[in-house]
């Protein structure tokens, strides 16, 4: 195709601002963070420019309370990661269970009303995440409206202990990222050709069999994209665990934040934890991209 609109020679100057801004304020910072993770910590925050693997050592290895025992695997931080992965996975599952029927329902509405349903689902996403999390906390706290109502109609005698539990954190994550699950599944179901369902029905397949055997394999890319869009931000979430959880629900986000705020701050360690989190997310994303290209090739 000829260059009919005449922008071909201009791509470099047009893209220069993007390269400079994102490159300088995001790409370079990540590189600097990688360097900081192998420097020596300075007390009261900051670093000393001496190479040291102390941060990674602190994360993975323990040598006992006085540092004189044989090195063993340090489980403290690995278990925080493990718990975060679990929390994020359960929140993703919760989003999937609620999000799939919702996406399906919206995608099968008449074309005019679909936009309105989608709009209703996405509005809460644009409301400040902090405000949404605080609102949820207000609703489910011990003396909050939910517990008052439950006790009022006599369903429970005392308040349900919801705040500061794993369930509250999952609920918060679910509440934060649900639209991310609904939208890609909606896009996949909207493209689904219902002739396949009809063909299966003609061959005496029940509707749930059709859903399981025909629909799910076809809309799977949408489901996987949705799961990814919920799982990745949940993994590094800070507000939901911090406001809705307690000490027992400590997640990666809080661990990182502590290294930069508290009096016990340790910048290289915080940078190292952030690097490990980012590597984890990259592995998930690369695995997804591989699977997606493979599925496309088929």
């Amino acid at each position: 195709m000829a260059d009919r609109s005449g922008y071909r020679g201009l791509t470099a100057p047009l893209l220069l601002p993007t390269w400079v801004v994102i490159g300088l304020f995001m790409l370079v910072p990540v590189a600097v963070m990688a360097i900081y993770s192998v420097l020596t910590k300075e007390f009261r925050g900051g670093v000393i420019w001496d190479f040291s693997l102390a941060a990674y050592d602190q994360f993975f290895v323990t040598r006992g309370l006085f540092g004189d025992e044989a090195p063993q695997i340090e489980w403290t931080y690995i278990s925080i990661f493990w718990r975060s992965i679990w929390q994020a996975a359960l929140a993703t599952l919760l989003c999937l269970i609620v999000g799939f029927p919702t996406a399906w329902f919206i995608a099968t509405r008449p074309a005019q009303s679909r936009g309105v349903w989608l709009f209703l689902i996405t509005i809460p996403y644009w409301v400040n995440l902090l405000i949404r999390t605080v609102s949820l906390k207000f609703l489910i706290r011990d003396t909050g409206p939910l517990n008052e109502a439950l006790m009022g109609i006599g369903l429970t005698s005392g308040p349900l202990p919801l705040v500061n539990t794993n369930l509250a954190v999952q609920l918060g994550l679910f509440y934060s990222y649900l639209p991310f699950m609904v939208l890609p599944i909606y896009a996949a179901v909207e493209r689904y050709n219902f002739a396949y369902s009809e063909a299966a029905a003609d061959l005496y397949a029940g509707r749930w069999t059709i859903l399981r055997e025909i629909v799910l394999p076809i809309v799977r890319p949408g489901i996987i994209a949705g799961c990814l869009l919920v799982f990745v931000p949940s993994l590094g979430a800070f507000l939901a665990p911090d406001l809705l959880g307690g000490a027992k629900t400590f997640m990666i986000g809080s661990l990182i934040e502590e290294q930069f705020k508290g009096a016990q701050g340790n910048w290289p360690f915080g940078a190292a934890v952030a690097m490990i989190l980012m590597s984890l997310v990259l592995i998930v994303l690369i695995a997804y991209a591989r699977a997606a290209t493979k599925a496309e090739a088929r």
Binding site: V30, M33, F260
Partner: peptide
């Protein structure tokens, strides 16, 4: 992840 952007920007 947002928290990684936050940390790297502060460090930078």
């Amino acid at each position: 992840p947002e928290i990684v952007i936050a940390v790297s920007t502060l460090i930078f």
